[in-house]
Simulated scan of single mutants.
Amino acid sequence: MEIRCIVIDDEPPALQVMSRYIEQIPYLKLLRTFDDAVSATNYLQSKPVDLLFLDIHMPDINGMDLARNLCSSPMLIFTTAYKQYAYDGFELAAVDYLLKPIPFARFEKAVVKAQASFLQQQFPPAIEHIFVYSSYQHIKIPLHEIIYIESLEDYLRIHLATQPPVLTLMTLKKMQEKLPQERFKRIHRSYIVAVDKIRSVVSRKVKLQNTTELPVSDSYGDFIRNWKQQ
Rank of each mutant, 00 (worst) to 15 (best):
L15C: 00
I130N: 09
P59C: 09
F53G: 01
A105M: 04
S219A: 06
I198V: 15
M75G: 11
L214D: 11
Q163D: 15
P59W: 09
M75K: 09
P59R: 06
K173A: 02
E182Q: 12
F34Y: 06
L208G: 03
E182V: 07
P103K: 04
K205V: 04
A81K: 08
S39K: 12
D154T: 11
R204H: 13
K109A: 12
H144G: 00
R225K: 15
P103C: 02
T162G: 06
D60N: 13
L179C: 13
I127W: 08
P13A: 11
A105G: 00
P48V: 07
L99D: 08
Q176H: 13
I158D: 08
Y148Q: 08
I3Y: 09
L156P: 06
T41W: 14
D35T: 02
S39H: 05
L172Y: 03
R186Y: 08
I8P: 03
D154V: 02
Q115E: 15
M170N: 05
Y136Q: 12
L169N: 00
E153G: 00
I147V: 09
I130V: 03
D10F: 10
H138W: 15
D196Y: 08
K173W: 04
V112E: 15
Y87P: 01
R183N: 11
R32C: 09
G63N: 03
I8K: 08
K100A: 00
Q84L: 07
E128D: 15
S39P: 01
R157H: 15
L143V: 10
I56R: 14
M175K: 07
E128S: 12
L160P: 04
E108C: 09
Y148L: 05
K197G: 10
L52P: 02
V7D: 12
M64L: 14
Q24M: 09
A126V: 13
